[in-house]
Amino acid sequence: MTDEKVITAKALTKKFADFIAVNAISFEVSKGEIFGFLGANGAGKTTAMRMLCGLSLPTSGEATVAGFDVYKESEKIKKNIGYMSQKFSLYEDLTVKENMRFYGGIYGLTEKRIKEKSQQVLADLHMEAEQNKLVKSLPLGWKQKLAFSVAIFHEPAIVFLDEPTGGVDPVTRREFWEMIYQAAQNGTTVFVTTHYMDEAEYCNRVSIMVDGRIEALDTPTNLKKQFNTASMDEVFLQLARKAVRQAD
């Protein structure tokens, strides 16, 4: 982890009509960091992440991702990030290999690179036998791991993960986090939203959003100290109970 900032946000805000989904959030993420983005349902995590990825235009405030401005240079940002949405993002009617080929191709990887990288990913996931199977035939945990591998297939500077472990079993979650660590070690910055407080412990720093605002931002250890509790669970509950907004 270096001091180079790859994501900066200053008073970033998103309004939908008279509803303020994200209310003037400010934070910085360093290169190689695993940054946890926590919050109850409807707290505004996904909206904030979508603004950073160039999927949603901010109402006001400033933000840069990989050194590019979110307003004017969103297409440049897109070259440098990977994204894994809550909704499953691979093509179910394509095979494992075809999905890798497609996403590699549209990020401009050469044929040779796509082949090499595909072999490597298949080996890492122990999925060589499944490479020609349709994605829809795979179990959910495998799909999620594959989706993550495809999101970082083009080796982006930053990868955004929106609740990547929703609905998968504890063993797979563990494996998934090992993959995240691996990516971070290779220099990829990981920006991840989650509901699971044990996962929050794995992050270098976490921010907790309540009603569109960032209410706390620090390392898990410091947060526990600050709120005088033994677990991240307690930290989260103390903050989230203050929420007025109804979960969606």
């Binding site: 897109k78 990030i81 994204y83 909704k87 993002s89 691979l90 549209i106």
Partner: peptide
Amino acid sequence: EVGTIEQINVTPI
């Protein structure tokens, strides 16, 4: 509907 369009929108396509 499936959500793949969002994945496409986040690429430099």
